[in-house]
Design a protein around this nucleic acid. Structure first.
Lengths: 343, 343
DNA sequence: AATAAAAATTTACGCGCGTAAAGAATTTTG
DNA sequence: CAAAATTCTTTACGCGCGTAAATTTTTATT
């Protein structure tokens, strides 16, 4: 290998005995050249490790092989997990994922989209911040770049939306909890950043009414993405006020529940469904850490795999066709109830 | 704004009344042109939203403004946190971070480095996988691209290393634990992927001997990066065998400890330093979730901010000088003991 | 073997910008 | 105000590759 340094495709073409345009064709799609030619090129590739210049390639392409993946908060293991799956799918489809985390900030989300646009990506997968998102900005971006939203929906924006069916999450948990004990109250942030939270609240109220029960919603204060802390502090307050209307608490999401459980532990309240338990706590998401809370958290699980796969497939369909969808499809995957010790 | 669509720098130069070379100079460094010229360009920028083509720029530059940031496992909130800080520092220094996660796989680490090389980055910050890293591959990469290692050291590789002083972590915890109760045994994976784990074990033995105590190391089985699960399963086994030589357990890292605490809870063992507690558990890292374990985890905290800042500063120094360091500096930051309820 | 179809080659141009050199304009200095 | 020092303009070339058109070579078909 590396018999001599190859500067550019011209040189590489000459040492491999093939013309440059054909070599160029090979690099765009190895299957598009004759088998014998391909073999010669790949033989040369063994001897001289040449790689085409990324920038020169992309300058002349209208679209690149880049796919942007923008998530609201990568330090949340939920997004880390889904990003991991998505990245893998993108790579195996022959594209290059560019992972960006907005860190909960509108300015970053906007900046990243602007940056992405000038990278001429084939498409973008966007999990928007939600309430904190700049709708107009994202809308303009989607005009330029084929974009599929996932996780959080922004009505009418993007070519499609793929996410989880929040009402399925809540139906599962409410049904289970009411069947096995006192009906749950609903524990959430007063002003949730994420639109899924609102859907879950609505679904909770509906589910309770369907069961002929009166809903109770407990709203706690707090801004930002430090959900565990917010849940913890909110729980301490609620427990101190003894304002829980029932012994069963359904948290809007697992990160709040993690905080809630920590607070219960501090206050010496035993959580679970057995004898001697003061409270039952359940939640939604199946956060990667929810198996390791004390007690382990009963929760409704996202179908991570399906959401990831469908998001990527939808975007690739868009990319391959080179067209936009005539109508905006919304795909929602149902939840799966995961019974653990907390409820 | 957007009075008409600007295609390229030529057009933008003409509408702003400045020559293209000068405009080019402006975009490379706005301070390098006369104040009045700069004002005219920026006025034009207000009216027509033009941005130079990224690919064309980078094709002609020997080095780009890209800085690669490679971490072993982004789904670990520890790395998510440090990556967040590093990204911010890089952006504010006027560079573009490219965040990559090896997901614990050597092949991905190698592929990402190869990919980065062809992006002609100004430099790279690399937290290597550790034992799973391909030393030769990384060494060759570092010959081509100025690289600063962080978190995990690989002896002699890269221009510098910035990390935490593992022996400081362990000194703090061992000193505290021996002072306030029974001396700790050390709980760790049998074949840790991360070199820091080895340093911590050695430091534990040294610290115990310094206190005139006999070290006890408990090695548990498990491969990969699912530390919580490994810690949990290992703890269940150790507890079942009643093989703990003392009532005080010092875990090699917080993620193992999270699993350990979950196992204790399941077995009904009360953890903490108060009356009625069967065990004390402490650990190292100050993982973002360690505040929310049950009980909250006593641990030795990384100085995230210092490690991040020093890593970025060191790399930027390298980048700005355009030279390599004559000798490879290793900077280690001490730990800070964080007392919580678990020990 | 003759013909049609497919694939490769040659030639040529363009992409958008960096950058060098030489001269013109502007600003700074004394 | 003149000279010196900056800064800008003009002109020109090159980067490495995509890609189109016309031609030649190779392969597949009957």
């Amino acid at each position: 290998m590396a018999e001599r340094k190859i500067k550019n495709m011209e040189e590489f073409a000459s040492v491999s005995g093939i013309s440059r345009p054909t070599v160029s064709k090979y690099f765009n799609d190895p299957a598009s050249v004759r088998q014998t030619t391909r073999a010669r090129i790949e033989a040369a590739l063994e001897r001289y490790d040449y790689r085409p210049n990324v920038y020169a390639i992309n300058q002349n392409r209208r679209l690149t092989k880049n796919i942007g993946v923008v998530v609201p908060y990568l330090a949340d293991p939920f997004f880390a997990e889904i990003a991991r799956i998505i990245e893998r799918l993108i790579i195996s489809a022959g594209f290059r994922p560019i992972l960006l985390s907005s860190h909960g900030e509108q300015k970053l989300e906007n900046d990243f989209l602007d940056g992405l646009r000038s990278l001429k990506p084939a498409g973008v997968l966007l999990a928007p911040l939600g309430r904190a998102s700049d709708r107009g900005h994202i809308e303009r971006f989607c005009k330029d770049v084929p974009t599929v939203l996932f996780d959080s929906n922004l009505d009418g924006i993007g070519e499609a939306f793929v996410g989880s069916d929040n009402s399925s999450f809540v139906s599962h948990t409410v049904e289970y909890l009411t069947r096995t004990g006192e009906p749950p109250c609903f524990f959430e942030m007063r002003n949730p950043a994420n639109p899924n939270a609102n859907k879950r609240r609505v679904a909770y109220v509906e589910a309770m009414e369907r069961h002929g029960l009166e809903p109770h919603i407990i709203k706690i204060d707090g801004e930002g993405w430090a959900f565990e802390e917010i849940g913890h502090d909110g729980a301490l307050r609620v427990l101190a006020e003894k304002s829980l209307p029932t012994n069963t608490v359904l948290c809007s999401n697992d990160r709040l529940a993690i905080g809630f459980l920590a607070a219960c532990y501090e206050k010496g309240l035993r959580v679970g469904r057995g004898e001697g338990c003061a409270l039952r706590v359940a939640s939604h998401d199946d956060h990667p850490f929810s198996r390791f809370t004390c007690p382990a958290l009963t929760t409704a699980a996202h179908d991570y795999e399906s959401v990831s796969t469908k998001s990527v497939d939808t975007l690739l369909e868009l990319v391959d066709s080179g067209e936009r969808f005539t109508e905006r499809a919304e795909t929602l995957f149902p939840a799966r109830l995961v019974l653990r010790a907390s409820a």
